[in-house]
Simulated assay, not measured.
Amino acid sequence: MPQGFRLSFNGGPAARALRESAARGLFLAAEYVLGEADQVVPLDEAALQRSGTASVDAPSLTAMVSYDTPYAVRQHEQLDLRHAPGRTAKYLETPLNAARQEVAALIAAEIRRALR
């Protein structure tokens, strides 16, 4: 005789856990990119480096890495400025592009933890 069963799935808590883990992963990834950018950000008195922040907007699952000084954009975009050895323009863009695999791995690891 066939045996029956009933399965109910409450997807709300699972979806919330996945979003929370994705937001955590995004924050870790943003912190990683910030650390990499801090290695090449132009230095004079280190005000630019100290202004770096990483944050996440959890509802939109958007991560942000920014530097907040009046000259941050100019230092990033103007390629003809002279910098100390090892420091460069595109101090945020270059590390972000170089860290794509690490960023994806950090986010994926947090999501995998939530699925356990």
Rank of each mutant, 00 (worst) to 15 (best):
T69F: 03
Q3A: 13
L48R: 07
A29E: 02
V40G: 06
E20G: 10
V40E: 15
D57Q: 12
S51F: 13
P59K: 05
S21W: 04
R6E: 06
Y32A: 01
G4Q: 14
D38A: 11
S21D: 06
Q3T: 14
A29S: 11
L26W: 04
A30E: 01
D68G: 13
L26N: 00
V40A: 12
M64P: 00
E31F: 01
V65N: 12
M64C: 12
L18Y: 03
F5L: 06
L18W: 01
V41Q: 14
D44P: 01
G25K: 03
A14P: 01
L26C: 04
A22T: 15
L26M: 05
R24M: 05
R50P: 00
S51E: 09
Q49W: 05
G25R: 00
Y32I: 00
D68A: 13
E45Y: 08
G52R: 05
L7M: 08
E31Y: 00
S60M: 05
P70C: 06
A63D: 00
L48C: 09
L48H: 10
S8A: 15
S55R: 10
R16P: 01
F5N: 09
P13D: 07
S55F: 07
L48A: 10
V65T: 11
L48P: 08
Q49C: 05
A63I: 04
G11T: 03
E36P: 00
F9C: 08
A17W: 03
D68S: 12
F5C: 04
G35Q: 07
A15T: 09
L26T: 02
F5Q: 07
L48V: 08
R24D: 12
L18Q: 07
D38I: 08
A37L: 04
G4I: 13
Q39A: 15
V56H: 04
V56I: 12
A23P: 02
F9D: 06
Y67L: 13
L61N: 00
S8W: 05
N10F: 02
T53R: 15
L34E: 12
L28P: 01
Y32H: 15
P42F: 11
Y32N: 03
Q3M: 14
R16L: 13
E45D: 15
E31N: 06
G35F: 03
G12S: 09
A22C: 14
L61C: 02
D68I: 05
P59G: 00
L48D: 07
D38C: 10
S21F: 00
F9M: 13
V33K: 02
T62H: 10
G4M: 14
S55N: 08
N10R: 09
L7Q: 06
T53S: 12
Q3L: 14
P13Y: 04
Q39H: 09
N10V: 03
T53Y: 11
V41F: 10
S51A: 11
T69A: 03
L43E: 12
L43S: 11
Y32R: 06
D68R: 11
L26K: 00
D57P: 02
P59I: 09
A47V: 12
S60T: 13
G4Y: 10
P59Y: 11
S51K: 05
A30N: 03
R6A: 10
L48Y: 06
N10E: 14
G52D: 04
L61P: 02
G12T: 11
A58L: 13
L61H: 07
F27Y: 15
P13C: 05
